[in-house]
């Protein structure tokens, strides 16, 4: 009998520690499928963040480096500059990239470093147990904003894709989501494009992926998808913010 659905070779044969309903597993799989399809498993180096995906290196089947909190873009810069023949990507969450690592991502993007950043935005610090992130929505409850995010006190959530798209240098900036099958197919296309641009030596690319965190949102997995669809996607609009073709 013909096999019609297989685990990507670039994905390790193991269980993950992610919570039920978390979309990291989907995004891991999309990255692994793209790496398989482009045939670059043997030359790929991933850079893991600090956050829920800190152990990402256990779930992929290729070389990985584990960076300090927020420093993945600097680590990836070092790898790619020293070894331009390697395929390099960072996998970062919103606390890692949009808070402590903002300087590193802005400058890596602005230099046009030839690697890919997968930015998973679930509007909360997951690993440390649900604290407010720079991406937490107005009035969203977290353990460090128990009355909800007060925008008069801490400002509005940062729209990372728009922020990076405002720079002149980076050429592919896209925001996708993985809340519905249709979105998942589109997210994969964007991730594949980003890796292809790198293989063509074109540009820095970032794909922001709107994700869920049922555990820290205090919602069921199904309700989380609905909340993300209603609340996050109305603020974090999906689409390509910059493409090399448009330049």
């Amino acid at each position: 009998m013909a096999k019609v659905f297989l685990k990507p070779k670039a994905l390790a044969d193991t269980h993950t520690h992610y919570c039920p309903g978390c979309t990291h597993g989907i995004i891991h799989r999309l990255v692994a499928e793209v790496i398989d399809e482009l045939g670059v498993q043997d030359t790929t180096v991933g850079v893991a963040p600090v956050g829920c995906s800190v152990l990402a290196y256990n779930y992929f089947n290729f070389d990985f480096q584990e960076a300090a909190h927020g420093r993945a873009p600097a680590v990836a810069t070092g790898i790619k500059r020293a070894r331009p023949d390697l395929t390099v990507f960072t996998y970062q969450g919103d606390g890692d990239l949009a808070s402590i690592g903002m300087a590193e991502i802005i400058h890596a993007a602005n230099r046009g470093e030839k690697f890919v950043t997968i930015f998973v935005n679930n509007a909360v610090y997951g690993m440390t147990g649900g604290q407010m992130a720079p991406t937490t929505m107005p009035n969203q409850i977290s353990t460090t904003s128990p009355a909800g995010r007060d925008v008069a006190d801490v400002g509005m959530p940062i729209k990372v894709a728009e922020l990076l798209a405002a720079l002149q240098t980076p050429a592919f900036i896209s925001r996708q989501a993985v809340l519905k099958p249709k979105q998942i197919f589109k997210a994969k296309k964007a991730i594949k494009k980003a890796f292809q641009y790198q293989l063509e030596g074109k540009c820095f690319s970032m794909v922001e992926v709107v994700s869920t965190c049922p555990t820290n949102w205090g919602l069921t997995p199904v309700d989380s998808l609905k909340w993300a669809e209603d609340k996050l996607l109305s603020y974090y609009k999906l689409g390509d913010y910059k493409t090399p073709e448009a330049e």
Partner: peptide
């Protein structure tokens, strides 16, 4: 900070 992590990345790649 970034310079030292570029060092980390390139060293980690064996350079």
């Amino acid at each position: 900070v970034a310079a030292s992590y570029m060092l980390f990345g390139a060293a980690g790649a064996g350079e």
